[in-house]
């Protein structure tokens, strides 16, 4: 049997020529790939889990038999459709989403740059670390209230408050990544006198990607929850503002509709953007 093209003619491969063509190479057959076999089961578990949650909710709503306390899913869907047609739901979700993106981007950029520098320089870390520890332990409400007091009840203050609350966790994650950079590859950069852009994009960033991905995924889920608090305290629109309105009128249907709608959008972003990106960034690790 012929050896696969990629290895044919290689002296080390002489002793495997009797194996079938797929036994050596980059495309092993499904029979040997347990991850690929396991995938359809894992893919089915997620929707089944969500379905069981909806069934449990529906059963609980019927048992409670009081829509003011726990409305059934169909009641929520009817209310969501009404809000969707009126335009209030997409408008408020869009506004909140914009705030989440802005605050998330600021926190990721600032936290990543400062975290990387602190990870590479113990002196800089000694200067910045106490600041980050204080910020990390500062109650969120204090940050939000002070932002509004000092900067006024405006968009800038809202976004800044969220960014300040999120930056320390990004900083800590990326700093760990910078500390874990392989010194052997640093030697390689030095010996071959690689230009700065190649050091950064070919050597450093790929090593940091798992840390950036972890910071992004945890960051997004925390950021949107903080944004709701910020909106509740000092903005005239957005999901947080609407939740406050419905809370004042004890409208559980409204609270659940807006809360779950936004959570669903975040879930979509997580599964369609962040998870595939993380998988792609780590593809070389899975093949190792």
């Amino acid at each position: 049997m012929r050896c696969p093209k990629a290895y044919s003619g290689h002296p080390m491969m002489d002793d495997v020529r009797h194996f079938p063509e797929h036994a050596v190479g980059s495309n092993p057959p499904d029979a040997f790939d347990t991850r690929r076999r396991a995938f359809p089961i894992a893919a089915a578990i997620r929707p089944l889990s969500l379905l069981s949650f909806a069934v449990a909710w529906w059963a609980a709503a019927h048992l409670a038999s009081n829509p003011q306390i726990l409305p059934a899913p169909d009641r929520l869907l009817a209310f969501a459709w009404q809000e969707l047609r009126g335009g209030a739901l997409p408008l408020n979700i869009g506004i909140t989403l914009a705030r989440v993106i802005a605050a998330f981007a600021i926190a990721m950029v600032v936290g990543s740059v400062v975290g990387y520098l602190a990870g590479r320089s113990p002196r800089l870390d000694a200067v910045i670390d106490p600041w980050m520890v204080v910020t990390l332990n500062l109650p969120l409400l204090v940050v939000v209230v002070l932002s509004y007091v000092w900067l006024g009840l405006n968009e800038g203050a809202a976004v800044l408050a969220v960014a300040i609350a999120k930056t320390p966790t990004v900083f800590i994650t990326i700093r760990e990544g910078a500390r874990a950079l392989d010194p052997a590859l640093k030697d390689l950069e030095t010996v071959y006198r690689l230009p700065l852009s190649r050091r950064l994009w070919w050597v450093t960033v790929p090593q940091l990607l798992p840390y950036i991905a972890a910071a992004s995924r945890s960051g997004l889920s925390i950021t949107w929850k903080i944004v709701l608090v910020v909106e509740l305290l000092g903005r005239p629109n957005g999901v947080g503002f609407v939740l406050n309105l419905y809370f004042q009128s004890f409208n559980v249907t409204g609270i659940l509709t807006y809360g779950l709608s936004f959570a669903a959008i975040m879930l979509v972003v997580e599964t369609t953007v962040l998870q595939p990106w993380e998988r792609r960034a780590n593809a070389w690790r899975r093949r190792a």
Binding site: A184, W202, P206, R285
Partner: peptide, 23 residues
């Protein structure tokens, strides 16, 4: 310029063989 082969190959695992040279 310097060329070096360390005791361990020190190839960048996320780059293909060709890209390790292109680096």
């Amino acid at each position: 310029r310097l060329g070096v082969v360390f005791q361990d190959p020190r190839l960048l695992p996320w780059l293909t063989v060709a890209d390790n040279l292109r680096l």
